[in-house]
Design a protein around this nucleic acid. Sequence first.
DNA 1: TTTGCTGCAAATCCTTTGCAGAGGT
DNA 2: ACCTCTGCAAAGGATTTGCAGCAAA
Lengths: 143, 143
Amino acid sequence: MQKHPNLRMTRQRRVILEELRKVNTHPSADEVYEIVRKRLPRISLGTVYRNLEILSESGDIQKLEPGCSLKRFDGNPSEHCHIRCIRCDRIADAPMAPDLEIDLKRVNSTDFEIIGHRLEFIGVCPECSDSSNPGTGQYPPND
Amino acid sequence: MQKHPNLRMTRQRRVILEELRKVNTHPSADEVYEIVRKRLPRISLGTVYRNLEILSESGDIQKLEPGCSLKRFDGNPSEHCHIRCIRCDRIADAPMAPDLEIDLKRVNSTDFEIIGHRLEFIGVCPECSDSSNPGTGQYPPND
DNA sequence: TTTGCTGCAAATCCTTTGCAGAGGT
DNA sequence: ACCTCTGCAAAGGATTTGCAGCAAA
C-alpha cells in the first residue's frame, strides 16, 4: 500500500538524487534547486519539491526538521522533553528529562562545539490509538 | 545586550502569558490567538506573534519546533543524528547514534505509545566559532 | 513625555497544487 | 499507448513588517 506504486526514474529525479548524494551540506529545497539547475537549467522548483517528497517517501533520502512546520508554544519555561503524536501532531510533555551526558561526550568528536541537544519522542497518543484511523505507522514521518 | 531592553507588560502580553500558563496543549500561534481573543476581542494576530516571540526570548515561555522552519534534505537515508549550528543553521552529521533505551523505557509512563525519538544536537560550527560574530549563545535558539 | 506597543493590512517566505503537454516504461 | 511526470504560474498557509495612533512607564 504505497503512495507511489509506479515510480519512474526521470532525468530530473535521478539528477536530484545524484546531487544530493554528492554533498553533505543537508541543503534546503531551494538550495537543491540551485544545485540541480546547473545540470538541468529548465527544471522547476515545483518539480524539485515533488521529487524530494517522493524520494523521502521511498526512503532514498531523508527529510530533516520535524513533520509539523507549525511552531507551538509552551507556557512552562523549564527544560523538559516533549512527545509528539505521529498521527495528529498533538504535543504533550514527556515525564522526565533523560540524562545524555555520555552521548554528549561521544558526539563531541565533531568539530562542532556542543552546547546542548533537543530530544523529542514520537508516539501515538491515546485518542489516535483508540480510533480506527490506521495512520502510516511510519517513522520518521514524511510530513 | 538584550534584544528588548525596556519591555512593557501590556494588557495583551499579560493575557497571552496567563492563558499560555493555564493550558498544557502547546498551542500554535493561531490557537493562542483564538484563546486570547475571548478576553481581548480586538487583539490582532500580528500582536500575538510579536508577543510570543518576545516572551520566548525573555524565557517566560518556550517556542517548540526547531528555530529553522526550513526543511533540509540528506542524501544519506540511514539513521543517524544531526548537529545544528546555533548561529548559521548549518547542519552536519553527528558521528554515532547514541542508544537511548533506558530513557525510552522511563519516558513510557506517558499514555502515549512510544514509537521512536528524534535527537538533534545543537552547537557552534567551526566557521562560526572562528568568526567575530558573537551570536546569542542562547539555547534553545529563538531563531 | 517618551518610546515601546498596538491593530490593521499588505508583504514575504516556503511550499503545494491545477493544468495541459512531455516523456518514461 | 498508458499514465506518471514536467514546467509554469497561481494559490496556499504561516509568519513578518510598515505605519500611524495608543498607552505603559
